[in-house]
Amino acid sequence: MFMRRLGMAWVWLVYAFLYLPILVVIVYSFNASKYSTAWSGFTLDWYAKLLANTPLVDAALNSLSVATLSATLATLLGSLAAMCLHRYRFPGRKVLHSSIYVLTVSPDIVMGISLLIFFIALRMELGFVTLLIAHTTLGLPFVTVTVLARLAEFDEHLVEAARDLGASEAAAYRHIILPLTLPAVAAGWLLSFTLSMDDVLISFFVTGPSFEVLPLKIYSMVRLGVKPDINALSAVMFGVTIVLVLLAQALTNMRRK
């Protein structure tokens, strides 16, 4: 009993360590004081000023567009790569399989510099396209690893039974493989989306002056101190994250029923 209570206390301590700083930011987004950390009253002015901050809103929309497109491309390419690595045998398969895991632990600064050199060699103008390619490259190995983990538990006899009943390769994938791997595919998309929205280092190297994204915009703003509208933006982003997680959990529960 004592060990159980000790374990529960440790769990709550870990959750407090993770979430208390976020809750502090959310609380201070309603603080009427602009510069002081002392509470001076409740206000929604910072949310109104956030909506009126056109450069910050534009940067947020740029980040959302890049994150959505890059996550979709990474999920499509990563799922196909995972399927090929799992089902087919070809020369260089083991090297390719190992290199996917290397990319997941590769430092962002190495990837950022290498992509910058690559784009310069191709004489590509830095901006939306280069950032999209970079973030797709960033998310692709994570999607591949996530889907591969799900395919490792997949029963290949289901596909063989479908093929024996006359289903084509495409039909077997659409009606059997895809529905069973859909949670992993969705998880890979969410992970890629989060990585893109959160990335600073790679974005710093591959985005140009004409296309500004939210992480770099926030980084340039907080160098002079954290302003209340940044707290409001953080609260909004955290709220959107909670909604997405709850929606994903609801969809998962519906599929189970």
Rank of each mutant, 00 (worst) to 15 (best):
M83F: 12
L148V: 03
S65V: 09
S98E: 13
S114H: 04
A67C: 08
G112P: 05
F142A: 06
V95S: 12
A149Q: 10
I26V: 10
A82E: 02
V105S: 08
N253P: 07
F119W: 00
Y19C: 12
Y173G: 15
T144G: 00
F128V: 02
P228C: 02
L18K: 11
F42S: 11
L140V: 04
S168P: 10
T130C: 03
R255G: 06
T241M: 14
V243G: 01
I218A: 01
A170S: 15
L151F: 06
E169V: 11
T43N: 05
T137Q: 04
W189F: 13
V27C: 14
R123Q: 13
N53F: 06
S196I: 01
L244Y: 06
S29W: 08
I22D: 05
A248K: 11
S33A: 08
D155P: 12
L18S: 07
I218H: 01
K34P: 12
L182Q: 15
P55A: 00
I117W: 13
M254A: 15
L73V: 09
F154P: 08
R223T: 13
E125F: 14
I177L: 05
S70W: 00
A82R: 00
V222D: 08
H157K: 15
L13T: 11
R93C: 06
S234N: 04
L180G: 09
L51W: 11
T194H: 11
L116A: 05
G7Y: 04
S65Y: 07
L224W: 11
I218Y: 02
Y15L: 10
A38E: 12
L80A: 04
A9L: 10
I230A: 05
M237F: 08
V236S: 05
G127V: 07
L115A: 09
S210E: 15
G225V: 05
L85M: 03
T75G: 00
Y219W: 11
N31V: 04
T54Y: 08
T43W: 00
Y101N: 15
V27K: 04
L103F: 08
F128C: 03
F128D: 00
I26R: 07
G78H: 07
T68Y: 03
E212S: 14
A186E: 06
T37R: 12
N53W: 02
A250W: 08
N53S: 13
A134Q: 03
